[in-house]
């Protein structure tokens, strides 16, 4: 971002203005001039507008750069409406809205103003949804804990433990190649490529071993009593 100071060339009387960017008032007593910020904002807005124009034409790198630059702008606008823990939700929502509404942007208008209005509206929408949800939901953790689950089976946890034990024992009885395939691919959720690197077997061989192992395990567990 290039800041251009129009007052730096004005001599010593305007030095304080150049240093403080206009926030302490102009030397002649006028207010709301803020030339450095305005010139910077204008050039920044023109650049964002050019990026959006390129994005509308399908330029992906321009679009990625534009969206990254939009994030702080959206955060700033959202922070005025939403609490800190919701600001990132607004950012995500606005990025999606920007994507879906990108064809409605008119390059002859300010991009920052376009984005700010959308961000503000999405922040208001989000806060309305939050308030609506809060009015429908009741925070009562004790009630939740005391509510009986009529379909709960007291024996289910014990049964799950026994089944897991049974599966573990059945896996131990498998030949080494099949056992490795089950342990890495099923139990450790590794990919075929990772398993291949760990065991030295080819991916095709692992697939075959796994298929055979699962068939054997199914037969064993079905035959053995629970």
């Amino acid at each position: 971002m290039t800041y251009v100071s129009t007052f730096c060339q004005g001599g010593p009387t305007t030095l304080n203005y150049a240093l403080f960017g206009g926030c302490i008032g102009a030397p002649d007593g006028s207010t709301a001039v803020w030339p450095e910020r305005r010139v910077a904002d204008d050039s920044s807005d023109a650049r964002l507008s050019a990026l959006m124009r390129a994005a509308q034409a399908g330029d992906r790198s321009a679009y990625a750069a534009l969206l990254r630059e939009c994030v702080p702008v959206i955060r700033r606008v959202a922070a005025r409406r939403a609490p800190a823990d919701r600001v990132d939700d607004v950012v995500q929502d606005v990025l999606l809205t920007l994507h879906n509404a990108r064809h409605t942007y008119d390059p002859s208008r300010s991009f920052t103003a376009w984005l700010s209005v959308i961000s503000d509206r999405r922040a208001v929408d989000l806060m309305r949804r939050v308030v609506r949800d809060h009015s429908r939901e009741i925070h009562a953790p004790l009630q939740y804990e005391q509510h009986p689950d009529l379909e709960a089976d007291p024996a289910a946890p014990q049964q799950r433990t026994e089944t897991a034990q049974q599966v573990r024992q059945a896996v131990e009885t498998l030949p080494q190649r099949q056992r490795e395939a089950v342990q890495h691919v099923v139990l450790s959720e590794r990919s075929l490529k990772e398993t291949s690197a760990l065991t030295g077997q080819s991916e095709g061989s692992i697939k075959v071993s796994l298929h055979r192992a699962l068939r054997v395990l199914r037969l064993k567990i079905e035959r053995e009593p629970q």
Partner: peptide, 10 residues
Amino acid sequence: LTGDLAPVKR
């Protein structure tokens, strides 16, 4: 979103 980008008619 960048991956989904397609040119749009203004």
